[in-house]
Amino acid sequence: MSANISGRRVADIERAPDSSVTTAPVRTASPVVGPPPRRRLRQTLEAYALLTPSLLGFVLFLVAPIIGVVVISFFDWNLMGSPRFVGLANYREMTGDSEVWRSVRNTLYYVALNIPAQTVLALLLALAMNRGLRGGKVLRVLFVLPWMAMPVALGIIWSWAFDPEHGAVNQFLSLLGVSGPEWLSSTTWAMPVLASINVWQYTGYTMLFLLAGLQAIPESLYEAADIDGVTGLQRFFRITLPLLRPSMLFVLVTNVIGSFQMFDTVYVMTQGGPNGSTDTMNFHIYQQAFQLFRTGYASALAMLLFALILLVTAVQFLYFRKRTVYDFS
């Protein structure tokens, strides 16, 4: 155990000079001491026995199709005829395709709109919920309900909400004397609308994870801070936020991966328009694969999206690794 990644990581972090982290209740990794050889063999057999169903699903239904995609990305194939090997042609075409790079920009823009808004809102909600308000439990349930919304069903509701003349949003704004924009026809507003729909759906869900993190912070730390005269915002920035980092990392990593793969809302609401302003990578992949039936090219685009997600996730890990006792591996 001492030689594996997780052990090394915890040790690194414990040595980290960041003082805020050392106040964290550092949980030691499971101290299963390196087993003797015979037990090791038994453990290996047991482990693989336990893993068999999960591995079966993993290899057959995840890894194999992924390998399939990698292979297809080197072919020109419309699903019907026989595939034609084209080497790196799909990847070469990709580098010169301005629509692809527009979709990369759109995706990054969407993530940049969505993630901060959702995370900050969820954090504020979690802080409010953590105060033990009366009726808080009911409110909490209501906030989480949007999470289970079914995209096919909600398309109708959103087009009612954002219709420029009869829509609920603009009718509400006109009560305030503001004349609302033509939301989904505007290259400026279409993407923020899509992002806000996503924020609506997932803020409550994200809040649950952050609330859990907040509740795990020992009250004694705050009491100690009170004695030291640390109050208000200082309390938040010096105790709450640092101790929330593990939850933050989890929430950010999973939400960012989800945001990069956003599809339903674009499909239902805009089909990538107006003027390509909401053509995200996953939608572009869908269009190439299932509308234009350029399966090989779409597979190459999927590789690009994967590389992008991998990069962004790695950056998040590196950032948090320096500051967190998150024992990931």
Partner: peptide, 28 residues
């Protein structure tokens, strides 16, 4: 449990979370 290939396998699991699912539906 301790077993050879554990960390590699676990990171493999994590990595597949990052693969866009839509396109894998064709081979599937």
């Amino acid at each position: 449990l301790e077993f050879p290939g554990r960390d590699l396998l676990f990171w493999g699991y994590i990595a597949t979370m990052m693969v866009p699912q839509m396109i894998t539906l064709v081979p599937l």
